[in-house]
């Protein structure tokens, strides 16, 4: 049975707002609408639940940190640290997002309609059936996928500031796992020295069709048009980028 509730977040401090959200979830409410959200931090943080929260406004930092299962719809922009160490769940952001989105994320999916800041998907990992996914519709700042240890990172470049390149510098620096797909081409000088572009396989095309399809569905875009342009696939040279650095004293 669907149980809905609306919470007006106007003027409420994050601690009280998050308490109200947790109390609602305890009452088996499975759809929460938050109105007038304006910078409240930690929404969804550490919550294990399958409910859906829709957020009107701009949630604050560490949205969905350690989150384990919720679906978050953000009708606005998100700030820094979205999906920090997230384990499970889905986040759909109908706007832009800030820095370090997906830091150490282990599972779940994040879709951003617009652009993202620096160090997105930094140290993203994967484990067994958990393969995190981040799809960014716009452009990304520097250090995209830095230290990435697993998961799938897709950058579409459909929108964003015209003068800005699709991705900043040091893309994939220190990467030692996972796959990155960037629509179009990336100049070699932008890549970290631990990553290399490789040929797309049939599996890659199927994977992109699946995830870009979901992205297009979330934001009402044309999947085929997005996929019509070739993608650059980036993977790390090896799982042990720093293997031969040491000698026993």
């Amino acid at each position: 049975m669907n149980q809905n509730i609306t919470i007006d977040a106007k003027g409420i401090y994050y601690r009280q707002l998050n308490e109200a959200i947790k109390a609602s979830l305890q009452d088996k409410i499975n759809t929460i609408e938050l109105q007038n959200v304006n910078g409240q931090r930690y929404i969804g943080a550490g919550i294990t639940n399958d409910a859906t929260i829709s957020i009107q406004g701009t949630p604050g930092n560490d949205l969905a940190a350690y989150m384990d299962g919720l679906t978050l719809q953000v009708y606005g922009n998100a700030q820094d640290g979205v999906a920090n160490t997230m384990n499970k769940g889905t986040i759909i952001i109908h706007g832009d997002a800030g820095d370090a989105l997906g830091y150490a994320m282990r599972g779940g999916e994040v879709y951003v309609k617009g652009s993202v800041g620096y160090r997105v998907a930094i140290h993203m990992k994967e484990f067994q059936e958990k393969v995190p996914l981040v799809v960014v519709g716009g452009k990304a700042g520097s250090f995209f996928g830095e230290y990435m240890a697993g998961g799938i990172l897709i950058l579409l470049g459909l929108r964003g500031r015209e003068e800005q390149p699709i991705v900043g510098d040091y893309c994939g620096t220190g990467m030692h796992g996972g796959i990155m797909y960037i629509r179009g081409s990336v100049e070699e000088h932008k890549l970290g020295k631990e990553v290399k572009p490789v040929e797309m396989t049939e599996e890659d095309h199927q994977r992109l069709a699946l995830y870009v399809g979901r992205f297009a569905e979330h934001f009402g875009e044309d999947k085929e048009e997005i996929l019509a342009q070739p993608f650059t696939k980036l993977i790390p040279y090896n799982k042990r980028p720093y293997g031969n650095l040491y000698v026993g004293a």
Binding site: R41, Y42, G46, D62, A65, G81, N84, H123, Y147, Y242
Partner: peptide
């Protein structure tokens, strides 16, 4: 390889540290 980078990528200041402390308290 299990690499723990030197800094936390979300901490560059005392204010950022506060953010991590409180994200853990919230969680």
């Amino acid at each position: 390889d299990a690499i723990s980078p030197a800094p936390h990528h979300d901490i560059y200041s005392i204010e950022d540290l506060r953010q991590l402390i409180y994200s853990l308290k919230e969680a």
